[in-house]
């Protein structure tokens, strides 16, 4: 029982990080209908920025927001200079999603290579700002550590902020309207192009947070080829799809579900099946609900 609760705690923590990545992917999908693999590159690059800041200031709490800003900037840069012209030219009505996917894959590759050029063989270090020693409960150390608690806190804070922005502010209303119905929004005076760039920016910030947290939660350091980031991208995307790709709530549910199930499999079945399990979970969910847990039937094009 003790072990099981620990497994759950581990799963929820990593799942919450997948949720952030899933949110990054959902935000871009909602605003421009692009499956954004460059999100992995953005997360990676902002983690390096965070590591650099951490190195010179020594403060995680300065590094994190600056990393988020870097992620937002890079992500909106990508939207503005690559995806916008690409989508403008192919016209909004095309159902073609393959080329944008490939374009973002190309951007991911370029980002990694550029990081290699800049950092060479140096690694980016995000040392945990808090202890990762578990709290002691009735003499035994549990999987919940100050570090994990902080990670959960950051993710939760970010999610609450996003929910408030989306549900309670005019900006949030514009973001939602522009993603569901760009033409109506335009006719209502919303600057849809700018709003889309903003959607990418928020996505970049969420991805940056995911990257930085993933790094402190894991190895504590990162390289341009880090396998952990491919994982983060893949699991984030799988979580987004499980959740229904359109929905922020779905992304969170998808991420946490995935995190918990994978932690259980890792603990009780065996590490080599984790990836296959992710595939099976995805297939099972989609067989029962082809549009994800919170998906809308017909997946209307916005």
């Amino acid at each position: 029982m003790f072990e099981f609760i620990n497994t759950l705690l581990i799963g929820i923590t990593s799942g919450s990080i997948y949720s952030l990545m899933a949110i990054a992917i959902v935000l871009v999908w909602r605003s421009t209908r692009v499956v954004n693999f460059a999100a992995g590159g953005v997360a990676l690059a902002s983690t390096f920025v965070g590591a650099t800041i951490l190195e010179s200031t020594g403060s995680f709490w300065i590094a994190l927001p600056i990393g988020m800003l870097a992620g937002a900037a890079l992500s909106s840069f990508i939207e503005y200079f690559f995806l916008r012209p690409l989508l403008k030219r192919s016209g909004e009505k095309t159902q073609e999603i393959f080329l944008p996917i490939i374009a973002t894959l190309g951007i991911l590759g370029v980002i990694k290579a550029v990081l290699h050029f800049i950092y060479g063989d140096k690694i980016g270090v995000i040392s945990p700002p808090l202890s990762d020693k578990g709290f002691i409960v009735s003499g035994e150390s549990i999987a919940l550590s100050p570090l994990r608690l902080m990670i959960l806190g950051v993710v939760l804070a970010l999610m609450i902020t996003l929910t408030l922005i989306f549900q309670r502010t005019n900006l949030g209303l514009s973001l939602r309207a522009a993603s569901f119905a760009p033409e109506i929004s335009r006719l209502s005076g919303i600057r849809v192009d700018a709003i889309r760039t903003l959607g990418w920016a928020i996505s970049g910030a969420a991805g940056a947070t995911a990257g930085i947290l993933q790094t402190t939660n894991g190895a504590g350091s990162v390289t341009p080829e880090a396998f952990e980031f491919s994982l983060l991208l893949v699991f984030g995307f799988v979580a987004a799809v499980i959740g229904g790709i359109e929905s922020l709530v779905g992304a969170v549910i998808g991420g946490v579900t995935l995190g918990i199930i994978l932690a259980i499999i890792l603990m009780y079945v065996g590490g080599s099946l984790v990836f296959f399990a992710a595939f099976i979970i995805l297939i099972l969910v989609l067989l029962l609900r082809p549009n994800g847990i919170i998906g809308v039937k017909g997946g209307r094009r916005a």
Binding site: I101, V238, V241, I245, L273, V274, F276, L282, L286, G299
Partner: peptide, 25 residues
């Protein structure tokens, strides 16, 4: 065949990551 767009991309992506790993099992 029941999936489209991002759902299909996600499924095949998970397949690509998941399948080779079972060789270890």
């Amino acid at each position: 065949a029941r999936l489209s767009g991002p759902y299909l991309a996600g499924t095949t992506l998970a397949f690509a990551v998941g399948l080779p790993s079972i060789a270890n099992q």
